[in-house]
């Protein structure tokens, strides 16, 4: 009996010792990747932005066209993200809770916008709504403008961000299975009660992460929006397009200033995500103690 315990302990110790070296190597390489890949581009953006001091930085950000671009970007994000959020939950629900024929194809179709180049995303809306497109002439007759205006920008943004929420939720929901929901149903909960009290708390982490991805990507989308925007300064330029415009006007410092504004917005979203994650974890821990 005791000899078995001893051998087990030795084996565990040996494996821990072996792990120590590997652990150090892994942590060092994580730091390397972080510094080379994430920190350097970030620092380059910030250092270029602050090259001529804070005054220039702020005047670039509070310039009228930049503010108009910021407004447009926030509006596009504000419309497209909630729409994709609802879609994401619905799609993940039917994919992960049921077995049906054609499921693989549906999942692939949901993924499709992701593998569609942003350029194509823009192109399809041009083919559809452009003056030479399928319903373009009709739109022109009725004086409705979709591409080169807000609706086109919103559509392109929705297109490129469709899969994010679903994509985060499906693996999570599949892993969790359907037992808890089935139990809730057997205990007499109706569909919505089951969703709000059982499913939603379980998928919160994934959901929040999906929304974060969706928002970040919607904010930074360039290729697709660039095709349908028309680049009218102060009117149909989103922030990323405004960055490009400034960059092309020898206005490096302003370009990088606006870029770092986007960066700060993104970092802020990431912070929100970290914070909500830790809240969820604490809730989980509390639930475990009770």
């Amino acid at each position: 009996m005791s000899s078995t315990t001893l051998t087990l302990a030795t084996r565990a110790n040996a494996s821990r010792r072996g792990n120590k070296l590997g652990r150090r190597l892994l942590i060092i390489s994580a730091w390397l990747v972080f510094v080379l890949f994430l920190l350097l581009p970030l620092l380059i953006v910030l250092s270029e932005a602050l090259k001529q001091g804070l005054g220039t930085f702020f005047s670039a950000i509070f310039e009228a066209d930049a503010l108009a671009a910021l407004q447009l970007t926030l509006l596009a994000v504000g419309i497209s993200v909630p729409l994709n959020l609802v879609f994401g939950v619905a799609a993940a629900w039917c994919v992960s809770k049921y077995e049906f024929r054609g499921k693989s194809i549906l999942v692939t179709l949901i993924d499709l916008p992701f593998s569609v180049s942003p350029v194509i995303a823009g192109l399809v809306y041009v083919l559809l709504f452009g003056a030479q497109g399928f319903i373009g002439p009709w739109l022109r007759e009725h004086d409705i403008q979709i591409i080169f205006a807000l609706p086109g920008i919103v559509l392109a943004t929705i297109f490129v961000t469709v899969p994010f929420v679903t994509r985060e939720l499906i693996p999570l929901m599949q892993q969790q299975g359907t037992q808890e929901e089935e139990a809730a149903r057997l205990l007499g909960a109706n569909g919505w009660q089951m969703f709000w009290h059982v499913t939603l708390p379980n998928i919160k982490w994934g959901l929040i992460y999906g929304v974060v991805l969706c928002t970040a990507r919607a904010m930074g989308e360039f290729g697709a929006v660039s095709v349908v925007s028309g680049h009218i300064r102060g009117y149909t330029n989103t922030l990323p397009l405004h960055v490009e415009i400034l960059y092309n006007e020898y206005n490096h410092v302003a370009a990088f200033s606006v870029a770092s504004l986007l960066l700060l917005l993104a970092l802020f979203i990431l912070l929100l995500k970290q914070w909500s994650e830790s809240r969820i974890n604490r809730l989980k821990a509390n639930a475990g103690e009770e």
Binding site: Q132, I147, F148, I232, R233, I245
Partner: peptide, 20 residues
């Protein structure tokens, strides 16, 4: 007066596609 700038061919195409 609103301005839009870009590559010449791209800009012509945008106008053809309905940029007013």
């Amino acid at each position: 007066i609103q301005q839009s700038h870009g590559g010449s061919g791209k800009q012509a195409r945008a106008v053809i596609d309905g940029l007013r």
